[in-house]
C-alpha cells in the first residue's frame, strides 16, 4: 500500500513538473550546452552549421589583446562599482527619511518609485534629450548657474559612462528605497525607544541599530543589484552605442555587437561566458559575506 502511494506521488510530481522540465531542457540546458561548445569554436553564423570550427581556447586568448573587450570589461566594472553603492546609499537615505516620519510618505514613495517601473528604453530616451550637449536642459541649467563649459555628457569620452550611470541610478533608486523601507518596518520600535532613554542621538541610532539590523536587506540588494549592473545593456545601446570610441562600451553591448553585427558567434559566446564567471564570482563573494555577517548579528 505504502509503496504504491509513493509511486503514485512520484507520478503526480513528475507530471506536475513536466512543463518545467521540458521547458528547461529545451530553452536552458540545450542552449547552455550549445553556448559552451560555441565558446570554443569559430563560427560565422552565415556559413551554416558545417562552418563551426573547433578552435580550443583561441577565443579566450584573443580577449586580452582586444581593446574593445578590455575597455568593455573595465567599463562594466566601473559602472557596477559606482552605480550599486550610489543607488543603495541614496535608497537607504530616502527610506530612512520616510521611515522617520516625513508627512505624505506614500506620495513621496510613489515619486521615487516611478522611474523603476518605466522601461529602460524610455529612461534612455528621456535622458538622451536631457543630456543633449549643446541645447539640453541640464547644460542649459548648468550654464545659467555660471558654468561656462559644462560637460558634453554622452558626446564626451570622459562623461559618457557617467551619463549612463546617472540615468541608471535615477532608474534604480526607487527600488532600493522600497526594499529598504520593508526592511526598516521590520525593526522593532522598542529598540529605538530604549536607545532614546540611553541618550543616543540620531546618528548613533542609525549606525548602531538601523544599519546592523538591515544587514540581510543590504546583502540581498547588493547581490541582486550587482548582478543586474554587470548585465547593463539597454542604456548603453540606446544612449551611446558604446561611444565615443569605446568609452562607454560594456560587456553585454560588445557581446551583442560581436554576435549580431559582426556575426562572430563563437567569440561572442566566449565573452558571454566571461560575464557568467564574473557573475558567479560576485554571487560567491556575496554568499561568503552573508555567512560571515549574519553569524555575527
Amino acid at each position: 500500500m505504502s509503496l504504491t502511494k509513493k509511486k503514485y506521488e512520484a507520478i503526480v510530481a513528475y507530471s506536475f513538473l513536466a512543463p518545467n522540465l521540458i521547458g528547461y531542457f529545451l530553452f536552458f540546458l540545450l542552449p547552455l550546452a550549445f553556448s559552451f561548445v560555441l565558446a570554443f569554436s569559430q563560427w560565422n553564423f552565415m556559413s551554416g552549421i558545417q562552418g563551426i570550427q573547433f578552435v580550443g581556447l583561441r577565443n579566450f586568448l584573443e580577449m586580452p589583446g582586444d581593446r574593445w573587450f578590455t575597455d568593455s570589461f573595465w567599463n562594466t566594472i566601473r559602472f557596477t562599482v559606482i552605480t550599486v553603492p550610489s543607488a543603495m546609499i541614496l535608497g537607504l537615505l530616502a527610506a530612512t527619511a520616510l521611515n522617520e516620519g516625513a508627512y505624505g510618505a506614500k506620495v513621496i514613495r510613489t515619486m521615487f518609485f516611478m522611474p523603476h517601473i518605466t522601461s529602460l528604453v524610455a529612461v534612455a530616451t528621456v535622458w538622451l534629450a536631457l543630456f543633449h550637449p549643446s541645447r539640453g536642459p541640464i547644460n542649459n541649467v548648468l550654464r545659467s548657474l555660471g558654468i561656462e563649459n559644462p560637460p558634453l555628457w554622452i558626446a564626451s569620452s570622459d562623461w559618457s559612462l557617467i551619463s549612463i550611470i546617472i540615468a541608471s541610478v535615477w532608474a534604480a533608486v526607487g527600488y532600493q528605497m522600497l526594499i529598504y523601507l520593508a526592511g526598516l518596518q521590520g525593526i522593532s520600535k522598542d529598540l529605538y525607544e530604549s536607545a532614546d532613554i540611553d541618550g543616543a542621538n540620531g546618528l548613533q541610532k542609525f549606525f548602531r541599530i538601523t544599519l546592523p539590523l538591515l544587514t540581510p536587506t543590504t546583502i540581498f540588494l547588493l547581490m541582486t543589484t550587482m548582478i543586474g549592473s554587470l548585465q547593463v545593456f539597454a542604456q548603453v545601446n540606446l544612449m551611446t552605442q558604446g561611444g565615443p570610441g569605446t568609452s562607454s562600451s560594456v560587456i553585454v553591448f560588445y557581446v551583442y555587437r560581436s554576435a549580431f553585427q559582426f556575426y562572430r558567434m563563437g567569440y561572442a559566446s566566449a565573452m558571454a561566458w566571461v560575464l557568467f564567471v564574473l557573475i558567479f564570482f560576485v554571487t560567491y563573494l556575496n554568499w561568503q559575506l552573508r555567512k560571515k555577517l549574519l553569524k555575527i548579528f
Binding site: 536552458f28 553556448s35 554576435a259
Partner: peptide, 24 residues
C-alpha cells in the same frame, strides 16, 4: 538534485543563452 539544478539555472545570465537561442 532537480531542485539544486533549478537553483543553479537562476544563476545563468540570460545573455549566455541569447546566441544559442537565436540559432535554435
Amino acid at each position: 538534485t532537480l531542485f539544486l539544478s533549478y537553483l543553479a539555472m537562476m544563476m545563468i545570465p540570460p545573455q549566455v543563452l541569447l546566441i544559442p537561442r537565436f540559432i535554435m
